[in-house]
Amino acid sequence: MIEQQTISPSKAALKPGFVTGLIMLVITFLIYFIDYTYLVSAWYGFASLVIFFGLVIYFGKQYRKELGGFMTFGTAFQFAFVTLIIAGLIAMVGNILLYHVIHPGLSEMLVKVQLENMMEMLDNFGAGESLSSDQIKDMRRDMEDAYTFVGQIKSFGIALIIYAILSLILGAVIKKRDKSTDF
């Protein structure tokens, strides 16, 4: 009997992570070219999350098939986590290029739109007038800081924690136990 050689979850996740990152980058640039204000909209963030989830599940199921149709939770978690890290790195590099090389003034424009959206939302809840000008200035500064090179790196650090949590969920979705080994 010939033993099937399997690729480790980390190695198997490299190509899907790269593909997922490139797809997310293409979507980001398409949205930028259509209307940059969509980059800070709630629907864009939600749609990105759905696409992220969908691609990781798709690639995870392909990897599970390569493994013979079954995958432990640990393997699925590792696959999902490495995929998300690679995709996140590519997205971060793309965002840094977009905000600092391609369109250096974009971050300032996005902060303005974000602040307007937030103030509109707070006004809808009746809380807009309760903010002082100092609080609004602090929010603006925090938003501006998020678009800096250091801010992008910090955001990726926070994203790693989020990726770990998402990977737990994705690992639970992707795993499949071989019930024939139950006694």
Rank of each mutant, 00 (worst) to 15 (best):
I34P: 05
G45Q: 05
L106F: 02
I136L: 13
K175Y: 06
L160H: 12
F52Q: 13
I96K: 01
L106M: 03
A76Q: 06
I31Y: 05
R141H: 14
T181P: 03
Q78A: 08
G21M: 02
N95I: 04
L160F: 04
M1G: 10
D123W: 09
G94F: 00
T20Q: 04
F29H: 12
V19D: 04
A91H: 10
Q135H: 06
L14E: 03
M71W: 01
L131M: 11
M71F: 00
V82Y: 03
A159G: 06
Y44W: 04
I23L: 12
A127K: 15
G68P: 07
E3S: 12
L170F: 14
F70C: 07
F18C: 14
I102Q: 05
R141F: 13
A47M: 06
Q5I: 13
K137W: 01
P16Y: 00
L89K: 02
V26I: 13
L67E: 02
I153Q: 08
F73I: 09
S107Q: 11
V101Y: 04
I85C: 07
V26A: 15
T28L: 08
G171Q: 05
H103N: 15
T75M: 08
A159E: 12
I31Q: 06
I169F: 06
G88L: 01
T20N: 10
A42Y: 15
D145K: 13
M121Q: 15
L160E: 13
I165S: 11
R141W: 11
S130L: 07
M121T: 14
V173Y: 07
I161E: 03
L170K: 03
Q78Y: 06
F18N: 11
L25K: 11
I158A: 12
F33H: 10
L166Q: 09
N95T: 13
L22G: 05
G171T: 01
S132A: 00
F33V: 11
I7M: 12
I23Y: 03
L166S: 13
L115D: 00
M143H: 06
K11W: 01
S133G: 06
L160T: 15
F70T: 14
F46A: 12
L115H: 09
R64S: 08
M1D: 11
L97R: 10
M139H: 01
F59M: 10
Y99R: 09
F77D: 03
L84W: 05
M143E: 07
L131W: 04
Y163I: 00
Y58W: 12
F53I: 15
I2C: 00
K15C: 02
A164E: 02
L131K: 08
Q135W: 05
K65M: 02
A172Y: 08
F149P: 03
E120H: 14
V19I: 15
F77Q: 02
M71C: 13
L168G: 15
I165P: 14
S8L: 00
Y147I: 05
K11D: 11
